[in-house]
């Protein structure tokens, strides 16, 4: 669930409020959005992708709250990781979208599994 929006990073653009598919946030005039309905958050990280200021931290925990220490969080390198690895905005030239490799991964796993099965059948493991 979304845990925190860092108000010193937030530029009050309102894009996270609009982009959240679950309508978790409320716009605050000229201010940091309020996490108004945290219980509706589906932990999809989409708000982070649309936040160019990397002000939002979503914990992957979807069924429980997680304590977040803001100082540790700032030092952790986790803020903005999703947007960077997705190659959005300023990361477009340095972080290539390699989604096209996905089906090769599935194929390699199938081959590895078949080889493993074969070895088991032959009594080699």
């Amino acid at each position: 669930m979304i845990e925190v929006i860092l108000s010193d990073r937030c530029n009050a653009c309102g894009l996270c409020v609009k982009a959240c598919p679950m309508n978790v946030l409320d716009q605050v005039f000229n201010g940091t959005p309020e996490i108004a309905r945290r219980e509706d958050c589906q932990s999809c990280f989409m708000c982070e992708l649309y936040c160019k200021e990397d002000a939002i931290y979503v914990a992957p925990d979807c069924d429980r709250r997680v304590a977040v220490d803001e100082r540790q969080l700032r030092a952790s390198g986790l803020l903005g990781q999703f947007r960077r690895d997705s190659g959005w905005d300023e990361w477009a030239d340095t972080h290539e979208n390699k989604h096209h490799l996905m089906e090769q991964v599935f194929a390699r796993a199938a081959v590895a599994q078949a080889a493993f099965k074969h070895a088991v059948d032959e009594g080699k493991t």
Binding site: F45, P60, L78, Q81, F82, D85, S86, G87, H95, E96, N97, K98, H99, L101, M102, V105
Partner: peptide, 8 residues
């Protein structure tokens, strides 16, 4: 680079 949300 394939599925960024997984390692995140």
């Amino acid at each position: 680079s394939i599925s960024p949300n997984v390692p995140v």
